[in-house]
Design a binder for these strands. Structure first.
Length: 559
RNA sequence: UGGGGCGUCGGCAAGUGGUAAGCCACCGGUCUUUGGAUCCGGCAUUCGCAGGUUCGAAUCCUGCCGCCCCAGCCA
């Protein structure tokens, strides 16, 4: 373990419950589960749940199941089942043999439904959806009982069996639990257990035309799998009494406990599947794996290491308070991980030509550069140097303000791992734009140090013009301009028009050629970048994963 | 004038009657061939508010106030 010192023995309230249940013998083995519905791609919010469920199980020597909550065929697809498994694995977790589907339990669930009918605790209701809503009452008024509520067991059984045999149309009837239409908790006002859906299910095909609701499937599925702690988000708190009612009134093989925690919210982004889907469908982003998306596939493409996401989940903690976490914390976790693992390279995003007037034409040499100052084992590489170079346009100012200590007319700076150079002349085009810098170098400073001990205040990254490889670089920023997108008005109004900036004509050092998709590097002084899948051997494409901390940008912004 | 939750630093979050951890952010400084990293220091006399109990309260009691969730045959 790398960290964990901070609060090493401080457990969140859920782990505290688990610890206690194990200590007092309530449970000999801890079993949790991550239960996504296969109706979309996983996002960073799911990552919190995955890390909690798999993490806690592992910490207490138990196991965690991956269970697809596929009870609504209308929204679910095989594509999502596949992507979810890929994402969970990528995050670093392994469910082993414990892959399950709520649909595997459809027959058992059906049998339990009949048992409930036989016990007089469920009935078939002929009311329409609208009527059921009207009969349910409101938050402050009790509901009314359905006229079909007191049907006899035989009639209910007959009707329910015919529902299964697909004798009725969608919506014609439902199976309801008989609990209490006057309950303060609306979830207890005879909740729907089964509905008729003539829909093709991604796994059971056309075997069924009635499907259990979430409420009728979840707790029982947990019980079947011997889940000890069923962790879910806060909005299910009101469902817990129903969860318990079902588990208590059915002959299930175990007694799981539901515990709720706050879902993850991040500023400058949205997390709801509905809104993410909108962004994809309206073409605001290029897909679920657009590097700006908070999806795991987007973050993977962006270059976020899974270890950084796990670290983030740890640092965010688990509690019951509604909260919004600063995306800066996520970025910090990404930088911390990458700082240790990413090799350094030089790349110029916005090239400005520099000609070293006193460097012989046609001559070239190779200079040794450190691959990763954080990791000596990463070794060194050779970087070609010649008379014509490119430096970053941002690293030169003709009329620099006081705190700018990069290149300027008459000023001397260091080219990293190379020489000190001094700017002698600024060449401009007819419009007055700087097109080239004429400089001289000091041969005595090879490698970056001056024998006479003189210092320079800046070190610039650079690339040799003839040796450089051209590349496309994509820069990303927050998808939205405000921390709470859509808070007052349309979500689209808050879209950040500069969330993606594509730079063409970037110039990279030769060592950056031939990398494969997903490889991560630091471009010195600029940030961490990874190779995008769009990359081809003659057309490298890099994504900027995250910038480096930029103190100068802050100083500059302050004026 | 229903039911269920939650209110501790700008953002997360420990704390469970003994006198406010930590992290991110931010602000200084050190160091530096990345204005990166590192290292050092600063950052809640106060825990939604008001009373009360107590030698002692963020922690217990009472009353207010605020925010979130629930009226899908979604999950």
């Amino acid at each position: 373990m790398d960290n964990g010192e901070t609060g090493a023995d401080r457990l969140d309230f859920i782990r505290e419950i688990i610890r206690s249940d194990k200590a007092d013998g309530t449970h000999a083995e801890i079993v949790t589960r991550f239960p996504p519905e296969p109706n979309g791609y996983l996002h960073i919010g799911h990552a919190k749940s995955i890390c909690l469920n798999f993490g806690a199980a592992e910490e207490f020597g138990g196991r965690c199941h991956l269970r697809f909550d596929d009870t609504n065929p209308i929204k679910e697809e095989l594509e999502y089942i596949d992507s979810i498994q890929e994402d969970v694995r990528w995050l670093g977790f392994d469910w082993g043999e414990n892959l399950f589907f709520a649909s595997d339990y459809f027959e058992q669930l059906y049998q339990w439904a009949e048992a409930l009918i036989e016990a007089g605790k469920a009935y078939v209701d002929d009311l329409s959806a609208e009527e059921i809503r009207a009969y349910r009452g409101t938050l402050t008024e009790p509901g009314r009982e359905s006229p079909y509520r007191d049907r006899g067991v035989e009639e209910n059984l007959d009707l329910f069996r015919r529902m299964r045999r697909c004798e009725f149309a969608d919506g014609a009837r439902v199976l309801r639990a008989k609990i209490d239409m006057a309950a303060g908790n609306i979830n207890l006002r005879d909740p729907v257990l089964y509905r008729i859906l003539h829909a093709h299910h991604p796994r059971t095909g056309d075997a069924w035309c009635i499907y259990p609701t979430y409420d009728f499937a979840h707790g029982q599925s947990d019980a079947i799998e011997s889940i000890t702690h069923s962790l879910c988000t806060l909005e299910f708190e009101g469902h817990r009494p129903l969860y318990d009612w079902l588990v208590d009134n059915l002959p299930v093989p175990s007694r799981p406990r539901q515990i709720e925690f706050a879902r993850l919210n991040l500023n400058y982004t949205v997390m709801s599947k509905r809104r993410l889907l909108e962004l994809v469908q309206e073409g605001q982003v290029k897909g679920w794996d657009d590097p700006r998306m908070p999806t795991l596939s987007g973050m993977r493409r962006r270059g976020f290491p899974p270890a950084a996401i796990r670290d983030f989940a740890d640092r965010v903690g688990v509690a019951k308070r509604d909260s919004v976490v600063d995306v800066a914390l996520l970025e910090h976790c990404v930088r911390t991980d990458l700082n240790h693992q990413a090799e350094r390279r030089m790349g110029v995003l916005r090239p400005l030509k520099v000609v070293i007037e006193n460097y012989p034409e046609g001559r070239e040499e190779e200079l040794e550069a450190v691959n990763n100052p954080e990791d000596p084992a990463a070794g060194t590489r050779m970087v070609p140097f010649s008379r014509e170079l490119y430096i970053e346009r941002d690293d030169f100012m003709e009329d620099p303000p006081k705190k700018f200590f990069r290149l300027a007319p008459g000023r001397e700076v260091r080219l990293r791992y190379a020489y000190f150079i001094t700017c002698r002349e600024v060449v401009k085009d007819a419009d007055g734009n700087v097109t080239e810098l004429r400089c001289t170098y000091d041969p005595e400073t090879r490698g970056g140090d001056a024998p006479d001990g003189r210092k320079v205040k800046a070190t610039l990254h650079w690339v040799s013009a003839v040796h450089a490889i051209p590349a496309e670089v994509r820069l990303y920023d927050h998808l939205f301009t405000r921390p709470d997108p859509g808070a007052d008005g349309s979500l689209l109004d808050d879209l950040n028009p500069n969330s993606l900036v594509v730079l063409d004509g970037c110039r990279l050092e030769p060592a950056l050629a031939g990398l494969s998709a997903g490889e991560l590097v630091q471009f010195e002084r600029l940030g961490y970048f990874c190779v995008d899948p769009d990359s081809t051997p003659d057309r490298p494409v890099f994504n900027r994963t995250v910038t480096l901390r930029d103190t100068w940008a802050k100083v500059k912004a302050r004026g």
